[in-house]
Amino acid sequence: MPALEITPRAVDFRPALGHVNLMVDTFIANASVEDLRSIVRNLLATGPPGIAPAFTNSARSRLRQTSAKAMGSAFAFFEHQPHTGSITPTQHLYDTLTRARLLYGAGMGFSSLGLLASIVRATLGLQWEEDDEMEDILAIVDADIGQAIQSSKEEIDGGRVGDIASAREAVHDLRCAVNSSMADVEGWGGEFPFERASSSIQYWKV
């Protein structure tokens, strides 16, 4: 009697994606912010060439879902200290800067310009002393505007600007805010805090 022919059972060595995804999601839910930042940076630096564009595309999609163009009240960016008479930034200002950085960092520079213009406009009518906290934070805002403008230029070069009219309006709004600030500061003899922003936007045509 001939021996029975036994066909080896096909074994699928691929991971069970549902199980792996569940474990990864558990890790993400419990990892610290610093751990996640380190992992993402390492993944973007060492991963395949397409991973960075995929990451920024996903980031932009998420930001659009969470109201990328939402703007807060300009009146809450700064407050007067009754005992010293000085002007200090509020938490709302820092939150707005964080939002702007998320936008221009993900390649949505034009969406961040309105937020930054609202901060610049909120300084109109305010006065501050040299070398105080207000001067320091406005220097940071100036640097953020420069980064946002660079992000906007890359957005144009990448062909990601869907509404060029809105983009031009955002640039015009920021330019007007910066120019108004310059005139306001000159009026009370202060040092204009947005020199880099002014230089970057003066001759920028969209």
Rank of each mutant, 00 (worst) to 15 (best):
D95A: 14
D95C: 00
L97N: 07
L97H: 04
T98P: 04
R99N: 13
A100T: 06
A100P: 05
R101F: 02
L102Q: 13
L102Y: 10
L103H: 05
G105T: 02
G105E: 04
M108E: 12
F110Q: 10
F110D: 05
S111G: 12
G114Q: 10
G114N: 13
L115S: 14
L115Q: 13
L116F: 07
L116R: 01
A117Q: 09
A117T: 07
I119R: 03
V120G: 08
A122Q: 09
L124K: 12
G125D: 13
L126E: 11
L126R: 07
W128Q: 13
E129C: 02
E130C: 00
E133T: 10
M134V: 11
E135Q: 11
D136H: 13
D136K: 10
L138G: 07
L138D: 07
I140R: 05
I140Y: 08
V141E: 07
V141Q: 02
V141I: 13
G146I: 03
G146H: 03
A148S: 14
A148R: 01
S151A: 15
S152G: 07
K153A: 06
I156R: 10
D157W: 03
G158W: 01
G159E: 07
R160M: 11
V161D: 05
V161A: 02
V161E: 04
V161K: 01
D163T: 08
I164H: 08
I164V: 13
S166T: 14
S166H: 08
S166L: 13
A167H: 05
R168V: 09
R168E: 15
E169H: 11
A170C: 03
A170W: 00
H172E: 15
D173A: 12
L174W: 06
N179C: 01
N179S: 10
S181H: 02
S181W: 00
D184F: 00
D184V: 00
D184I: 00
V185E: 03
V185A: 06
G187R: 10
G189S: 09
G190V: 09
G190R: 03
E191A: 14
F192K: 02
F192C: 06
F192Y: 14
P193T: 06
R196A: 14
A197L: 01
